[in-house]
Design a protein around this nucleic acid. Structure first.
Lengths: 147, 147
DNA sequence: TTGAAAATATTGAATATTCAACAATTGAAG
DNA sequence: CTTCAATTGTTGAATATTCAATATTTTCAA
């Protein structure tokens, strides 16, 4: 059996496309769930990262939540207005700003977590536990290798 | 061995996050390659879908290239200016517009395909053929099941 | 056949993101 | 010490995306 050269692959055979498509669908599903709390997916990520209680600099946070710096700055501005998070200057390095969750933010984060977990459980139901775990494993190692 | 409840999962354990992260990285890599031709990833997708030579309506195309309608309309406007694609009214249903690639678009598409293929080959090199194929398979079936 | 509802694509205003320039602070070489 | 380069975060302008409203054509029921 001879495969066609990759140049003629339909776009749906490309890894980059499959990733984009899967990401789009899963993200849409989650977005729909989180809309119950009126919060975009990125804010859930931010709250979740900050929930370890340690202060995180804007740079760290931007990397962790997959946003670039200016976008993060503006989203944080909104979240500060909503009293979900607050800024403190880092005493060790006064260029940095450390971000923290407020109590209100923590409470919201708990509600968002449970919505997100319920989504993931729903996926596991229709897609299977084994496939889900295998997919997670492969994605994790792809990310590691793609540096 | 007892697992922690999913509510306390770090965000990096969530399927939605792993997908977003992997998609971001792979997409960035591809974007970098395609920048040699000064073209965004979405335009490669559009050209590739239209390369079957059949006319595709805006609706079909939007679904296929993972863009929503107004965004696609505006991107197509640019591509028409660049003489990469052209519009024809569908004679069977005059609500529809059928999109076609120009010769110039076809030539560009060939160059873009080879850049994209070389990226994918690079991934296969560091990540392995087996993992790549298994990941593709799992993504494909996730998309199927996630309807 | 007519008229209302659905489907398709585009537009413009509102919103969000990105790019490049900036300000503030730190680090480090001379 | 002093100065210059690097790091960090924010801002404003330019760009892109989205939402809601529109125009056009088709479908279908009465």
């Amino acid at each position: 059996m001879v495969k066609p050269p990759k140049e003629n692959f339909p776009i749906t055979e490309h890894l980059t496309y499959l990733l984009a498509q899967a990401n789009r669908e899963i993200n849409r599903q989650l977005e729909t769930r989180l809309s119950k709390e009126g919060v975009p997916v990125e804010q859930w990520r931010i709250l979740k990262v900050l929930s370890d209680g340690n202060g995180h600099s804007m740079g760290e946070l931007a990397d962790a939540v997959l946003l670039n710096h200016p976008t993060l700055t503006k989203m944080i501005d909104r979240m500060v207005s909503d009293a979900l998070v607050y800024r403190l200057q880092d005493p060790k390095d006064r260029r940095k700003v450390l971000m923290f969750v407020s109590d209100r933010g923590k409470a919201l984060c708990r509600r968002l977590n449970s919505l997100a977990v319920s989504q993931e459980e729903h996926i596991v139901e229709s897609y299977g536990d084994k496939s889900t775990n295998e997919l997670k494993r492969l994605l994790g190692s792809l990310i590691g290798s793609a540096t």
